[in-house]
Amino acid sequence: MVPDWPHPDKMEKKLHNVPASNSFKFHCQAMANPTQTVKWLKNGKEFKRYQRKEGFNIREHKSTPMLVSLVPDKGNYTCLVENKYGSINHAFQLDVAGQ
């Protein structure tokens, strides 16, 4: 089956404002059979978990990436979920405000 969002109501918010130094957890829970792969993009470029990238650390939290120690920044993030039957994506903006 093509990937689908089990709780689309939790994904309605398109703009997230977070103060610098805080953390932000991405929510992109999908279901599919066979199992899907999930990729995260920032401004159209893939970023991987467990790497230092642009002023924040990425940590794994129950298959959900978490950005920690945020610095002032703004970006468009996309969650891309795909399997052999198709793909879906969810995009939103994260705005990290300075202190």
Score class of each variant (00 low, 15 high):
Arg59Cys: 10
Asn83Lys: 04
Gln51Ile: 12
Leu94Asn: 07
Asn83His: 03
Gln99Ile: 13
Leu41Ala: 08
Val38Leu: 15
Arg49Gln: 12
Cys79Leu: 01
Asn76Val: 09
Ser69Cys: 09
Gln93Asn: 12
His61Val: 13
Pro8Glu: 05
Ser63Leu: 10
His16Asp: 06
Met31Val: 14
Gln99Lys: 14
Phe26Lys: 01
Asp4Tyr: 13
Lys25His: 06
Cys79Ala: 10
Gln99Arg: 13
Phe24Arg: 03
His90Thr: 03
Val81Gly: 06
Ala97Asn: 13
Val38Gln: 09
Asp9Tyr: 05
Pro3Asp: 02
Tyr50Ala: 11
Thr78Arg: 14
Cys28Lys: 02
Arg52Cys: 07
Tyr50Gln: 10
Gln93Leu: 05
Gln36Pro: 05
His61Lys: 12
Gln36Val: 08
Glu46Trp: 07
His7Arg: 07
Asn17Pro: 04
Tyr85Glu: 13
Asn89Leu: 03
Glu54Tyr: 05
Thr64Tyr: 01
Thr64Ala: 09
Asp95Tyr: 04
Gly75Val: 02
Gly55Cys: 11
Val68Ala: 06
Gly98Cys: 12
Arg59Ser: 13
Leu70Gly: 01
Tyr77Met: 00
Asn89Thr: 05
Lys48Gly: 09
Pro8Phe: 04
Asp9Asn: 05
Gln29Lys: 11
Gly55Gln: 09
Leu94Asp: 06
Asn33Lys: 11
Lys13Gly: 00
Arg49Lys: 14
Met66Gln: 15
Leu70His: 08
Asp9Gly: 00
Val18His: 09
Leu67Arg: 00
Ala97Lys: 15
Lys13Met: 03
Thr78Gln: 13
Pro65Val: 10
Tyr50His: 14
Ser69Lys: 15
Glu12Gly: 08
Ala32Leu: 01
Phe92Gln: 00
Gly86Ile: 05
Ser21Pro: 00
Asn57Trp: 06
His90Trp: 09
Thr35Trp: 04
Ser87Phe: 08
Glu82Asp: 05
Cys28Gln: 01
Thr35Arg: 14
Val96Gly: 03
Met31Ser: 15
Trp5Gln: 07
Trp5Tyr: 15
Lys62His: 11
Pro34Asp: 09
Phe56Trp: 15
His61Thr: 08
Tyr85Gly: 04
Ala20Met: 12
Glu54Ala: 12
Tyr77His: 02
Gln51Cys: 11
Pro65Met: 10
Gly98Glu: 14
Asn76Pro: 00
Asn57Gly: 12
Gly44Arg: 10
Asn57Cys: 10
Asn43Thr: 04
Lys53His: 13
Gln51Leu: 12
Val2Leu: 11
Ser23Phe: 12
Phe26Ser: 02
Ser21Gly: 03
Phe92Tyr: 08
Lys25Asn: 07
Lys13Glu: 07
Lys84Thr: 09
Lys48Gln: 14
Asp4Glu: 12
Pro8Ile: 05
Val96Arg: 02
Gly98Arg: 13
Ile88Leu: 02
Asp73Lys: 06
Met11Ile: 12
Lys53Glu: 08
Val81Ser: 10
Val2Ile: 11
Ile58Leu: 14
Gln36Asp: 10
Ile58Met: 11
